[in-house]
Design a protein around this nucleic acid. Structure first.
Lengths: 362, 362
DNA sequence: TTGTAGGCGTTATCAA
DNA sequence: TTGATAACGCCTACAA
């Protein structure tokens, strides 16, 4: 059954049916009732392809997630994000096309993205990426397809994005460790081509500088954001140091979990010997490490905000690029040395003004 | 730039361009070269909506995942599954539409599914569900949209599905615990409206029966498949029993993690006091609980197999329903009482013949 | 408030 | 091997 059939059965023209389907006010109550009855009886749903072709909109949003080294699977961040994006899209009556990256076949991925973008499979794209100068983002931006990046995009001011203030959040966390009287604070961070890895390390350095403590490269290592990386990096750091650090800022909870394991194996206690703060605050790790102090980022809200901005850009493609910063919260449990694992204290970290952050860390 | 424009620039008809784009052999080398050159120069990609409208295929597969009680986020199974389905779809040159369930608004979800199905947004659907008699599956099946369910579907033999032999896998695991000399084996399973929960419990009962041990309802509880559920159920069971069990079969690794916590709090050692085997064998839990013995199911392969069968059904909608069983493997590490956590022994559990399983557990 | 008619960019069926 | 010519199912001025 198609629109024409419905029109015939209801004794009206196709236009009238179209108006009813699309909620147009200019239909008489009688006609609307007849049409709705036929629609209901025949369980009519408009054909998506025909609609897209005529209206030039698909009502589909694309979500691109990089899956290099299996982060989609190994890192709950992306599950939460996907859900946040999905619910926001559904709420706005959009469908969601999932574009998972395959680290092994980058050229095939690029081809697929191109096809989706130029072939108008989607009305817009959410790109989860904080790769600095991501070539894919550049290409899509040039193509003029509505686009919002999750993670600030310092290399091209025309690109809209949503992010947290990683630098301020990290600074607050490290300052808290220093407030516990710790002086040899180490950090395990992520790969240097990712903006949020750099930002968190920068915040770490900020806090040290504010406390007048020199920056020691031997206390900084790449934990690759995942648990195995945190374990490996912590082991190597402990082996290389004459004296272990007395505190650790892990740039992700997964890193913290791995580091914790390495610390235990080295006979070091948390928080007595090493005070620990992680980053992310995702449910699964909260269950596994109930006493981990961590920086909580509002992942689902990030997804929703991204969709919201994307929808605005779809409506107004020529509007100036938008950027939005969401606040984080320092959640203090036991691993940083605060009293007991029971009491949870949240320290809000306000989001910086975009200009300031761009100037400071761009 | 559209197909017509390409035709004009290449000096051929639209038909010829269409043939080139679709890999039709009946084009002269000269014409093909000219067309390809124009396509390349103008970066032409065919419009998806127009294509779908004319060809009556979208080249999009839908993946429906139930997110009741946040399993998509809290349970790595679905991340791995999503990736497996996505890669298989991409390999076959399909896109993937993600249809996440929202437990809070079932009627909205049903409406969306209906719209997607009847509006031909997708060529076919992968439905991750082992809800027995899932009304959504029934409706979609009646609509005649190509459909494959992940998880056996006992109530309607016309429905195609892919599954593992949960019953045999559980039986093997429990038999292994009994082989360690344990006699009071408990199990924490999932909600009774899920086929795989019932099947795993049935396998547990099978193993007891084979060993001549009576089935004791006090040793069986619902762990809801998630960590918090496993913790709660284990606590309650320990509180209710005069004497703790000497072994536990957890129907998921997440349950095992929660139960482990409860056991520790009760002063019980694993495996000395309680031998433990979990279910799933997913990476994240392997990292968290490196010594957990568990039933490994091939989740990514399940996703791929599902897509493969779905594609066949799209090609041949009138072919008889297909079902496919994938093998599992019992991975023995330390928690069941086997020597050391280092040595890993895999015990393959062959997949049953469909008829036998249907008869046995349907 | 309603209907008419043209077009959206392909594919598919013919005939040449 | 090629090219007209219909569909495909809907939206959207525009006219009534």
């Amino acid at each position: 059954v198609n629109l024409e059939e419905v029109a015939r059965l209801a004794g009206v023209s196709r236009s009238t049916v179209s108006r009813v389907v699309n909620g147009d006010k200019r239909v008489s109550a009688a006609a609307r009732a007849r049409v709705e009855e036929v629609i209901r009886r025949h369980n009519y749903h408009p054909n998506a392809a025909a609609r897209s072709l005529a209206s030039r909109r698909t009502r589909i949003l694309g979500l691109r997630i990089p899956n290099t080294s299996g982060v989609f699977v190994g890192y709950p961040y992306f599950s939460v994000l996907t859900q946040g994006v999905a619910e926001a899209a559904y709420a706005a009556d959009y469908d969601l096309l999932l574009m998972l990256e395959d680290g092994r076949a980058p050229e095939a991925v690029a081809r697929r993205h191109h096809r989706v973008a130029r072939g108008r499979h989607v009305d817009g794209l959410v790109v989860a990426s904080s790769v600095i100068g991501d070539p894919l983002v550049e290409v899509l931006q040039r193509e003029g397809i509505p686009l919002v990046v999750l993670g600030r995009y310092p290399t091209n001011p025309a690109v809209s994005f949503v992010d947290i203030d990683n630098r301020a959040a990290a600074r607050t966390a490290v300052a808290h460790l220093l407030g516990h009287g710790r002086r040899r604070v180490a950090t395990l961070t992520g790969p240097a081509h990712l903006a949020h890895a750099l930002d968190r390390t920068a915040g770490y350095a900020d806090a040290l500088a504010q406390a007048g403590i020199p920056y020691d490269p031997a206390l900084v290592a790449d934990g690759e954001f995942v648990q195995s990386g945190g374990y490996r990096a912590m082991r190597e750091m402990l082996a290389a140091l004459a004296q272990p650090p007395d505190a650790l800022f892990a740039a992700s909870d997964a890193i913290a979990a791995g580091a914790l394991q390495a610390l235990r194996e080295a006979g070091l206690r948390v928080p007595e010997d090493v005070a620990l703060i992680g980053f992310d605050g995702l449910e699964p790790y909260a269950a596994t490490l109930p006493t981990l102090s961590t920086v909580v980022q509002p992942v689902a809200a990030l997804g929703e905000a991204t969709v919201q901005i994307l929808l605005e850009r779809i409506e107004h493609p020529d509007a100036p690029p938008a950027c939005r910063w969401l606040p984080t919260r320092l959640l203090l449990r036991g691993s940083c040395g605060c009293a007991g694992g029971e009491e949870e204290v949240g320290v809000a970290v306000a989001a910086a003004a975009p200009a300031a952050v761009l100037a400071a860390a761009g």
